[in-house]
Amino acid sequence: MVVQTATPQAATLRSATVITSETVRLSDLFADLEPGQDRPLGPGPAPGASIQVGGGQLLAIADEYGVDWLDQSPSAMATITRAGRMLDQTFFAELVRQNLPEIGNGPVAIELQDFHPFVVATDDPKPVVLSDVKWDQHSGWFTATAYRGRPVGDITQDSFMLTGVIHATHRVIVYARSLPSGTVLSASDVRMNDAYAEHLASKTFTNAAEVEGLTLTHGVVAGEAVSDQDVQRTILLHRGDPVLIAFTAPGLHLTATGRALEDGGASQYARVLNLMSHMIITGRVVSASEVEVEPGSGGVPSDSAGMRSLAAAALAPPRADLSLR
């Protein structure tokens, strides 16, 4: 009777391996090891870093631990990378907030100065500890000392100064794109920013409807807050101009002739006089010759003083200015 014995299966080289442990094992280099053959080899790379093991070293390791592997070659190469977790500005900003309860829960922006992100182990529950946190509430500047939870033995990396400034943020309308001077703003040109951290030197807007139809007095950059110094009212309808008054409702469309009682810009509301009913109506300026009256909007009777003012405006010479701040 002939007894057949199983032929051990040859191991295969792992050309690229990602580990989470601090230690490199034989199984990180070779797959299909025999039972009980795996063992630790030495320290692994730092979190986020890699090491390469060349063919000569692989042959020596395989020989020392009795690993029979396929395609043995001095030109073989294995790369071992240790997984890591990136600690970025968002992480440290939240850490600063946790260490400064006096900031409160209001909207603030925490900006770090000369910051460089670094990588820590993925299983490190408390990778950084802040100490000596100081904050000048008047200027907004803060300083702190950051210590690694797991020191790496390098004094230049195990602790460092964390500095920055804390700004109160604002909810404002900002430009959605860069725009040239003379642009008449529409709703698509702006967007809401709930945490705008830049300094506000002048009045800003918090509602897109407030800037629709205004004209830019100079070029602007995407992301800037929309300021009253950027815009001017675009006059389409001048006081005394003839105008068509339009009223539209489901199944109904009425028009009447009138005259403007005041200047009005695009999408703004202006008072007009209905020349047939002599009622003063408020409508939205659609163009230089049309005002749209919304359903439910009522009129008020005109008085003799208003009529005289309208007549004087109609007889006045045309003006050269086309816009009003």
Rank of each mutant, 00 (worst) to 15 (best):
E212F: 00
A31Q: 05
D132T: 01
M77I: 10
V120P: 06
G251F: 02
G44V: 09
V128L: 03
L244A: 02
R177T: 10
M279R: 11
M77E: 11
M307Y: 04
A93Y: 03
M279D: 13
Y196L: 01
P101M: 07
S323L: 03
A266D: 07
S309F: 08
H253F: 13
F92D: 02
L59D: 09
A121F: 00
V24P: 02
A312V: 07
D114L: 04
I80A: 01
R284S: 08
A144Q: 10
T206V: 05
G164H: 09
L59R: 14
I280S: 06
P107F: 07
L200A: 07
R284W: 05
Q157Y: 00
F247I: 12
L275C: 11
G36Q: 13
L100E: 00
D263Y: 01
R308V: 14
A260Y: 13
G140P: 03
A109D: 08
I245C: 09
E290W: 01
S21K: 01
N105C: 02
L58Q: 09
I166A: 02
Q268H: 15
D124V: 05
P35K: 07
S297H: 11
A266N: 07
Q4D: 04
T20G: 14
T255L: 11
W69A: 15
H199T: 14
M86D: 05
E94V: 01
A288W: 04
L13S: 05
Y147T: 08
L324N: 09
G66E: 07
I173V: 15
P107S: 15
S27V: 11
V96E: 05
N105V: 06
E64N: 07
T143S: 13
R233P: 00
T282W: 01
P47F: 00
S302C: 14
P127Y: 06
V128H: 02
T163E: 09
F30P: 08
G251S: 03
A249K: 12
G106H: 02
Q37G: 05
S202Y: 12
D194V: 15
D194T: 15
R191S: 09
A146R: 02
N99G: 00
E22W: 04
P250K: 14
A197C: 00
L26H: 02
E294R: 11
G299K: 03
V226H: 10
M276S: 15
S50A: 13
R14Y: 00
V291W: 08
F91N: 05
P127F: 10
